[in-house]
Write a protein that binds this DNA or RNA. Structure first.
Lengths: 108, 108
DNA sequence: TTCTCTTATCGTAAAATTACGATAGGATGC
DNA sequence: GCATCCTATCGTAATTTTACGATAAGAGAA
């Protein structure tokens, strides 16, 4: 049911992009540390408005990195372990460059 | 000499953001596969204008993931192995969530 | 020098991101 | 019912990203 069967490039790009903001990295770390689901405690943890945090949560959710369950009046977020694992796999799979074919670059 | 001594959150966010575009993922893969430095062959590899590719290369360079050496009339890009390694380390270091404290989320 | 090749930068426009306050909507408690 | 709490969404504005063509700048060849 994927829209067009996305490539590995796109998949990695989507996951990496979702992590491409300090606030979202901290959210992931917070959720992982708390291990469990959490809700708006994340808002207290970040120097951001509630609506902004909600937006970041949506980005992470759209990327599949987290999921949210309604738990009474509040929402319980937790990491999607398979997605995080997938990200680790894709990053690790990036081939390490074979050392210096002629000369390694030095300056920019 | 870091601007303010960036945190690990920011460091990971910067690296992840740089990878957060399919074109840039493909550039990294291409450079790693070629192992060695490369120049505007990257332009031929991507369905993008030369100026756009140059912009993507700049993003990767600013993030420290690649470097470019002038080699006569052309520029020789290559992966900065330490930065790629650092990214792998930071991603891998993301704590895996401790399994289900009460109940794992199911739907979004 | 002049011409050519390669790459970076400029200028621009469209789209996406980031952030906020304000508001709506759903669930619980009174 | 009504009030309250929590979260998502709306509306908005400033900034950034993405993309392109056009142009400049550097190096080598004729």
């Amino acid at each position: 049911m994927p829209t067009t069967a996305i490539s590995m490039d796109e998949e990695l790009a989507i996951l990496a992009k979702a992590l491409g903001h300090p606030a979202r990295v901290r959210i992931i770390q917070f959720l992982a540390k708390r291990s469990s689901c959490m809700c708006g405690d994340i808002v207290d943890e970040l120097p951001l408005a509630q609506s902004t945090v909600s937006q970041h949560l949506k980005v992470l959710k759209d990327a599949g990195l987290i999921c949210g369950d309604v738990d009474g009046p509040r929402v319980c977020y937790c990491i999607e372990p398979s997605a995080l694992k997938r990200l680790k796999t894709l990053i690790t799979a990036l081939p390490s460059p074979i050392s210096s074919p002629h000369k390694v670059c030095r300056s920019a």
